[in-house]
Computed example of a mutant assay.
Amino acid sequence: MDKADKYKRILIYVFMAILTLMSIFPFWVVLVNATRSAEQIQQGLSIFPGSNLGYNWNVLMEKQFDIFGGFKNSFIISACSTVLSIYFSAMAAYGLVAYKFKGRKILYAGILGLVMIPTQISMIGFYQFVSKMNLLNNYIPLILPAIASPATIFFFKQYLETIYHPDLPDSARLDGAGEIKIFHRIILPLMTPAMATMSIFAFVSSWNNFLMPLILINDTDKYTLPMLIQLLKTDMYRTEFGSMYLGISLSIAPLLIMYFILSKYIIRGVTAGGIKG
């Protein structure tokens, strides 16, 4: 390795280290502020933890911050919606790639069109629809729509086109396998890296979803964690920023766990693709 290549590698490592620090820094600031008092937070930014973690926790408890109930409610919604989104989007993408039927291109163009439409546009109509079905204050409207996820279908289709080969399902059909069995036994294992990637995005999006649950859920026992955090409003004389940051820190912990669990599958898929190449 000559000096030029060595310097290039060093620059790449330095650049990646800077990007890593920039990504970690906001999370670190939130965690640090969760251990500081309101006065310390108002004085300015700090990268060193404080000694007010216990006090901030007590403030949360005094405000009846039901952390475990919020975790449970958010997890139920996020886990169920993620499973539905990943499974049915993978099935739809497989259908678009594997089967040559009339109207396939038009259908795919419609899916791309839905990706470009902001969800906020349909909120009023969706609320009226849910209200007429007597599903307000229920988790079903927050979970079931995940079956139709245009962005996930688009991603899966693009990924499947790079790895799909007609000989795989054809061989399985010769052995007597049905279409559903082919999808479960052959296609889904091939799509594991893509499914892991989109599972992270789907879970994070559902976990952080605040506006739609706020519109549909009225019972405080069914509040998700982001909804509980917005309840951390203090009296007119004092704002407990430390307890608010602690609530935010608790809400992002499951997202980090979700990423660490699924990241190995993404790395494994990238490594396998590099070996095949």
Rank of each mutant, 00 (worst) to 15 (best):
L112S: 12
K102F: 08
L136Q: 11
A92C: 12
C80V: 04
F75G: 04
I124N: 01
L112F: 08
L114T: 14
V130T: 11
G103T: 09
P145K: 05
N73G: 03
Y99F: 12
F88N: 09
F75W: 03
C80P: 00
L135A: 14
I117F: 09
P150L: 07
L107I: 12
L136A: 12
L84I: 07
N137K: 06
N58F: 11
L144R: 07
V59N: 11
K100T: 07
P145V: 11
F68N: 05
I67H: 02
F101I: 09
A109E: 07
G69H: 02
Y108C: 05
N137R: 11
S81F: 04
Q64M: 12
I121G: 00
L136F: 01
A151R: 06
G103R: 08
Y87H: 05
I140R: 10
T119A: 08
N137I: 04
A93R: 09
V83I: 15
A148K: 02
F71Q: 01
N73V: 03
L60E: 01
T152I: 15
I111F: 10
S89C: 13
I117K: 02
G113F: 10
L84E: 06
M116H: 07
K105Y: 08
I67E: 04
G95Q: 05
I77F: 01
A79E: 01
M61W: 14
L107F: 14
F154Q: 15
I76A: 02
L96N: 03
V59L: 10
M123T: 02
S122K: 00
S81N: 00
T82I: 12
P150F: 08
I67C: 08
S131H: 06
S81M: 06
M91K: 09
V115Q: 10
K132I: 08
F71M: 03
K105M: 10
Q64P: 06
M133F: 11
I143G: 00
P118K: 05
G103L: 06
A92E: 07
L142I: 07
I140F: 15
F65M: 05
Q128F: 03
K105E: 14
V83K: 03
N134M: 14
V130K: 00
Y94A: 08
T119D: 00
K132T: 12
I76Y: 08
K100I: 01
L60H: 02
F65D: 02
I76L: 14
F129N: 10
G113R: 06
I106Y: 08
I86F: 13
Y87T: 15
Y139W: 09
G95F: 09
G95V: 11
Q128N: 13
I77A: 01
I140Q: 13
A93V: 09
F65Y: 05
F126G: 04
I76N: 04
I117A: 02
I111W: 10
M61D: 12
T82Y: 11
F75R: 04
Y108T: 08
T82N: 06
G103W: 11
F88L: 14
G113D: 07
P118E: 07
A79W: 06
A146H: 08
P150C: 13
A151C: 08
T152P: 12
S89Q: 13
L107C: 11
M61G: 01
V115K: 07
Q128S: 07
A90Q: 12
L84Q: 05
